[in-house]
Design a binder for these strands. Structure first.
Lengths: 336, 336
DNA sequence: GGAGATTACGTTAACGCTAACGTTATTAAC
DNA sequence: GTTAATAACGTTAGCGTTAACGTAATCTCC
């Protein structure tokens, strides 16, 4: 004989109707006269009735929770993707259970496992590389799943993103066209971020295909933060010799690198070219605009969420959606 | 007669024990022999058993979800606070339901209302200003609540943060000591961010108390992003006259402002002083270090989460915890 | 070797809600 | 004025789990 909190039953008693009528009134479904519905809602409010989502989800065998897994919050990129998605989901009445993996596949797997106990309406993962268990569990649970930020022809369920290898190639190609001949790359240790690795592959391919092939020097070791890592990368490169153009993993690192160049007395773009990635807000206020690639982050979130909502409602959607990037040309003294 | 998925019952049948024994085995509580427990776990894994948190939460009348409400993701500050909290909560087995209010109290209230239907173990709100309903509902639901980033003597439940007015005062006092006489402030429209408003009050007080009182010119209109807003603020100020020191709402805006100063041919710190807030990573790579205040963001998250966990377990903790900030002196040509 | 304590289970009844179906009023149709 | 259709409710059972209590077996100690 527990019972103390006010539930649908207490409201029903107070309103002298059945529990089912209260349930209907509160959910706003058909089968209750407008007069009675208003009366019930009034009483529910008076009694401070708070619906119990746990009970509801148990009864209907699903929830209005969506799980979202990101590598990290310490990067505006994911914040913007997230903002795009959440706007759409909030409007549809879903709440977001969010996790950050800190780039650890094991951590992602553990989280998915825990998440599944909540019977979420959908799951969103970042990237297309997961432990085999993850895809298998999501598939066998039949949960609509969106992979975002990267694309593959064979997603777990559906995916929306950009082609990172092609993006890298486009940036590399542009640099080749401008006549750069001793390129370098500053990023994270290979293997930590598969998207970054793909971009580097694209850059390399562009230089291999160029009029004459140029090897790329690769630098970059883990640092406390991206700005420092970019600066440290430049320091590392300059110990040996001066490249004529440096590609960075992203704009954060590019900015750190720029500052380091300044310390070393190198002018941009006269002495050294700088290429970033993402076209963050930061780059719009720089005195010297750098070359970068604008990624459709917000749009990605919106399109992804929309497709996923369609999947939830059983509407068929494209399994793979690749969004275009836009090359932003920085200031340069070369070419054309 | 629904039933199809595998629950505790199916596992029990397969293992030829009662449901209760399975429940005990899975939760790892006493009352099952080690041999039987191992056998049950083996069978559960074989049947792909996935616990149902909805049913569990319904039965025990609470969940292992914590709700976290932030103003926005578009600010490293909140990302770091969040990281500090989540580390602690993940370890304790809680999942985070996260919301961003975009600085709208109404949005926060709607979210709290929805969240309460999940019977969360705890709720974390940013700041101490909420619609009256919010505190009232959380209190009457008896849910441990943490207010973070700002402090008050009368929190909803407990709070951990910094004293923004005092922080502003400290920064202002420092500038007064250096002899600055025509200060200006660039921020968001008053009323949007109460913490920023409090800091501005502190800065004003410092200048009012100075050897001789100096009025502060206030600029700042909404922009697409913080960097642009900082730059626009400088443009706006310079249309009239040149202040000798400019306080910015935060480091992001300070950086935008610095870039704008460069455009206008103003050197820092010779022609104009720049003061930011937060000591973001960004400021560590600048060619000219600016004055700013280091806020203990990660620590705030950790301490907050720890206190909240104590509250959840019924351990009494201080209601209000104020953490200290550290003034970071930038480069300057004045004073001392 | 028997009273008491302990261990290892099983039974029963909730937790709050909703799907499915059943029942009673009300209206419409001829 | 009877029948058929519809709207507006009520009953019942079940969602998967756990708390509380019950029972049987084993152990402990003098």
């Amino acid at each position: 004989m527990r019972r103390s909190s006010v539930g649908i039953r207490e409201v029903a008693e107070a309103a002298k109707v059945s529990m089912m009528t209260v349930s209907r009134a509160i959910r706003g479904v058909e089968g209750v006269s407008e007069k009675k519905r208003a009366e019930i809602l009034r009483i529910a409010k008076k009694l401070n009735y708070v619906p119990n989502s746990n009970a509801r989800s148990l009864a209907v065998e699903n929830s209005n929770l969506v799980g979202i897994s990101l590598p990290t919050f310490a990067n505006d990129v994911f914040a913007e993707i997230l903002a795009g998605m959440r706007g759409t989901f909030e409007g549809a009445g879903y709440a977001s259970v969010i996790d950050t993996t800190e780039y650890s596949p094991e951590s992602e797997q553990r989280w998915v496992e825990r998440l599944l106990t909540w019977r979420p309406a959908a799951v969103i993962l970042t990237g297309i590389d997961h432990l085999p268990d993850v895809g298998q569990k999501l598939r066998s649970a039949g949960i609509p799943t969106l992979e975002i930020w990267d694309v593959t022809a064979d997603p777990i369920d559906i995916c929306v993103g950009i082609d990172h290898e092609a993006a890298g190639y486009e940036l590399g190609r542009y640099a080749v066209t401008l006549g750069y001949q001793s390129p370098a790359y500053v990023g994270a240790p290979i293997g930590r971020d598969r998207r970054a690795d793909a971009r580097l592959r694209g850059i390399k391919r562009a230089f291999d295909e160029g009029p004459c092939s140029h090897p790329i020097r690769v630098a970059g070791r883990p640092e406390r933060h991206a700005f420092g890592a970019g600066a440290a990368g430049i320091d590392e490169l300059l110990q040996e010799s001066r490249p004529d153009v440096v590609f960075f993993l992203n704009d954060h690192m590019a900015f750190g690198g720029m500052m380091a160049c300044g310390r070393h007395g190198l002018r941009i773009p006269q002495d050294i070219g700088v290429v970033g990635f993402n076209a963050l807000d930061l780059t719009t206020v720089l005195p010297v605009p750098i070359t970068t690639a604008k990624t459709p982050r917000r749009q990605m979130g919106v399109v992804g969420a929309r497709n996923l909502l369609a999947r939830i409602h059983g509407v068929a959607t494209e399994r793979t959606t690749t969004l275009p990037i836009t090359l932003i040309a920085g200031e340069t003294t070369r070419g054309e």
